[in-house]
């Protein structure tokens, strides 16, 4: 067989593989949307779940998912930002820094179920926080920290060192230079990273089943005092999220329309992730444009 024939066959095979992969991926997304979207309605998105009857919604789970996401982001962003600034702007290239980087890499490669179990052990049991929003938010923070730190560090890397020199030459300290010159310039790319990591956090379930819990007690959406037990803002209440809900009703769901609810929930989850992705791309580009033009 001469090399030209071989070349043609090989490229043909590659076309086939790529086509098959596209087909699989499209079928995947297609299935989620086609089977799920018809179930999605305003009613579905806003009513509480029902345990034994059909016709339940995912209102509370959806709220829990967003509430947990926001709390986890509020806790993890400042920590990740600080760590990234130290690593990129201050840390010297020595064995200590290397060790710290290794630790962060280990954290990012830990299975999320292990992170969840640690959260269970430490927050739920040791600190007696119980199955609660707070326990869940801490577990999500641990899960989120390494990736967010890495992504902010990459964002700092995109800003030219000449900008740092410029700040220092004006008599600014390194800290002032980073906070006043580098961070504002890096906002578009930091924001993109934050939104993408938000997507990951939003869909996470394994870290939550033993921290935020698997139940969604009824909430009174008129009561916004975080100290009241039925207030949506109460951080000490157990909170099943949308992703956990999908797992839960498929493992032990007893409502008759479990499958339909799973389909609908999956579609909502995937669309939310899709929106996070699009928002990240769009906002990143737009902010960058605003920064560089008139």
């Amino acid at each position: 067989m001469n090399s030209k024939v071989q070349n043609k066959i090989a490229i043909g095979v590659l076309y086939g593989i790529a086509g098959l992969v596209v087909l699989i991926l499209l079928a995947l997304v297609g299935y989620i949307l086609v089977s799920g979207l018809p179930k999605v309605s305003w009613h579905f998105l806003t009513t509480p779940a029902k345990a034994f009857l059909k016709g339940g919604g995912i209102g509370i789970q959806l709220f829990n998912s967003f509430y947990l996401l926001i709390l986890a982001m509020l806790i993890s962003f400042p920590i990740a930002l600080g760590a990234a600034i130290y690593l990129y702007e201050y840390a010297k290239d020595n064995w200590v820094t290397n060790l710290v980087r290794t630790a962060i890499e280990i954290l990012s490669s830990l299975p999320s179920v292990v992170v969840g179990l640690f959260g269970f052990l430490f927050f739920v049991v040791k600190l007696r926080l119980g199955f609660s929003i707070l326990s869940g938010a801490f577990a999500l923070t641990f899960f989120n920290l390494p990736l967010l730190t890495r992504s902010i560090e990459d964002s700092l890397h995109t800003i030219d060192d000449k900008q740092r020199e410029g700040g220092l030459a004006l008599g600014l300290s390194r800290w002032e230079t980073v906070t006043r010159v580098i961070l504002p310039a890096a906002v578009p790319s930091i924001l993109t990273g934050v939104i993408l990591s938000a997507g990951r956090v939003f869909g996470e379930a394994a870290a939550l089943i033993y921290t935020a819990g698997q139940s969604a007690p009824a909430l009174n959406f008129m009561d916004w005092n975080p100290f009241n037990i039925s207030s949506p803002l109460n951080p000490m209440r157990p909170a099943e999220t949308l992703a956990v809900h999908i797992w839960k009703i498929n493992s032990e769901g007893i409502m008759p329309d479990a499958k339909a609810i799973s389909s609908g929930s999956s579609a909502v989850l995937v669309i939310a992730i899709l929106l996070f992705n699009l928002a990240a791309r769009y906002l990143g580009k737009r902010l960058y444009k605003r920064l560089t033009s008139a």
Binding site: D160, K162, Q163, E165, G166, G167, A169, L170, G171, V181, P184, A185, L291, T292
Partner: peptide, 14 residues
């Protein structure tokens, strides 16, 4: 602040 510096490549801030 008393001994300032200007660099090879213009580096205006964003």
């Amino acid at each position: 602040r008393r001994i300032g510096m200007v660099f090879q490549r213009p580096n205006p801030f964003a």
